[in-house]
Design a protein around this nucleic acid. Structure first.
Lengths: 342, 342
DNA sequence: TCTGACTGTTGAAACGCTTCGACGATGTAG
DNA sequence: CTACATCGTCGAAGCGTTTCAACAGTCAGA
């Protein structure tokens, strides 16, 4: 293994000079800088991460808690992770994967100084992990939005606003009885933050328009068609559907087309999902994109800023955008509210 | 921060004694052991990972390279990751996420002593990363199976055998002209290991049975139906389909049902995908499970064993199993070849 | 010419842990 | 009773960085 001492010798300078060349924390004459840089290159030196973290008390690693619970959209999770990793790298950070939903995994990583900060996904409205997290020294950012007192920064897509936006669209198309075909029952049962917020926005918008809206759990399997049938059977006047379930979307779409509830001429669906999922369905459908990768990179930005000593930004929500594909008179409507910070 | 010195003082022993209690590398009397353990608990001590890695020259972290390339089945990737993480944890290892397909990311992690070993997913038949990996000090395990000289251990599902198995089943059902509806074109174009091997097994089995088999790229979107139509149009005698494309499966299934190529009475499909995907389709379909999580944990076992000094196991392939759902006379056929090690 | 400020460089002290060699104390065999 | 392992514990030397305090040397201002 080649150490900083080897580099120093090769370049004919002291160890500390090499260190300062690498960190840029002190002024170095151009000539020595070049000598050192050449030595680093010829020897192929890369500093020992452990030694570095011991001396500098920082690891350049961020712990990322990702959900393995049932019912989550892997597609979305994966994209968020992609965004986090890519953006963190641009700040010089690597990602340590934490998957156990037992918060002791995060505690272990934090107390063992394995990470400089923690990023937690799959937040529930009243998340038990938050208590543990507040006791840690490392800054923490949540991807999601718990209810009540928010003691730590949150980053997420504005699902509540998305609910309003979807209802707006369905109302504009003349629908007067709406249904939200949502996440699987287990996701709703544990009050996953995004599902709660979407339902809240959806129901509030319905109420504001004096229209009946109902929320339905939906499995990610082909059984989704059965849910559609039940919803329609229970109240045949339902004509407008907000679908927020990536895996179920193809089935729901197919069934609503079969039953005449959705067609290009008479659209009855707004889908809430990543763009490519909306496009993969056999026919046009209006959709609100879940900008999963953008959420991830925003979260990475926030947390890197906090590590650097920036002030915690409170809540950062990414505004929803509706893309219309079922009518030619409008192409895309950007919702007025832009990204808002609290 | 509480250090090992604090623990030593609290317990009234020396620092080294505390260390030996934790590592178990020397005999310690029951009484001191208890005193130390109590001290650790009361102070909530957890050793500094960086210091540890500096002194012991090992990090207890495994680098995991996961693919972000287009066309891969996120579902499968996610499950593999799950298996890796969970199993690695049982061996005391954490996972550092590496996503850039640029091998310099892995080089950086390895040369900076951030990881004890590397696990590389999404292997291509002639993978350019392998050259870089062989120069690293850390052991490396591939999830996939490159062609040619195999200089490093490989773990994967036996896709080639799966091809034979699927053909067996389709032949047994009387089909005499088969088609493999496979991965997206970009996956085939870069000769992703699993796609190549599946095609090889499929074509070899067809040839052995003196039956015509053809391989077709298929996008993950609704355009999959168009592929089905093209295949059938090009040769209407095709009646047996092996489908290996998680996202396309619902569309392919639907189209084949519509065109009368598949039904419970006259099944024409064998699906190669995770179990839950096969079950999510609206109707029974025979399938060969891709045991993604098992692949991940097998890989983790192999790599942990290598770190511990075990001899590299060569190639480890998990045998395929066919699950029959379209006929009541057979329930499940375990293929004769069991997990084989080379 | 002297003083003080600034520049570029250095030596050495941490950082928190593992592990080697050593050392009493105790047990065992001759 | 002596000689010699064995057991349990300890002190201290690293591991490879960062960073502080210090120090020559240069330069500008008085």
């Amino acid at each position: 293994m080649v150490t900083i001492a080897d580099v120093a010798e090769e370049a004919g300078v002291s160890i500390s000079t090499v260190s300062y060349v690498m960190s840029g924390k002190r002024t170095i004459s151009p000539t020595t800088r070049q000598r050192v840089e050449r030595a680093i290159a010829t020897l192929g030196f890369s500093p020992h991460a452990g030694a570095r973290s011991l001396a500098s008390r920082s690891t350049n690693v961020i712990g990322l808690q990702i959900p393995l619970r049932s019912g989550v959209d892997v597609h979305v999770v994966m994209e968020v992770v992609t965004g986090v990793v890519a953006q963190a790298r641009t700040h010089g950070y690597d990602i340590l994967l934490l998957t156990s939903d037992d918060p002791r995994g995060m505690e272990r990583a934090a107390k063992g100084s394995m990470v400089d900060a923690l990023l937690v996904m799959d937040i529930e409205s009243d998340d038990p992990r938050i208590g543990v997290l507040t006791h840690l020294e490392q800054p923490t950012v949540l991807i999601g939005l718990p209810e009540g007192r928010r003691t730590m920064p949150c980053v997420d897509f504005d699902f509540e606003e998305a609910g309003w936006l979807a209802v707006d669209r369905l109302l504009a198309q003349g629908h007067r009885r709406l249904a939200l075909i949502g996440s699987p029952a287990e996701v709703l049962a544990r009050h996953t933050s995004y599902a709660d917020r979407l339902a809240r926005g959806f129901l509030a918008a319905c109420a504001a328009a004096n229209v009946v809206g109902s929320v339905h759990a939906c499995p990610s399997s082909a059984d989704a068609t059965a849910v559609v049938d039940e919803v329609v059977a229970a109240d045949p006047s339902v004509t407008g559907f907000l679908v927020h379930n990536e895996s179920a979307l193809p089935h729901v779409f197919a069934r609503l087309v079969e039953t005449g509830k959705h067609s290009s001429a008479k659209p009855g669906i707004v889908a809430l999902c990543p763009e490519d999922v909306a496009l993969s369905v056999p026919g046009p459908v209006d959709s609100i994109a879940v900008p999963a990768e953008a959420i991830g990179s925003a979260a990475a930005d926030v947390i890197c800023d906090m590590i650097a000593g920036g002030t915690p930004p409170g809540v950062r929500l990414i505004a929803p955008t509706l893309t219309v594909r079922t009518s030619t008179d409008v192409v895309a409507t950007k919702h007025p509210s832009t990204t808002r910070a609290t």
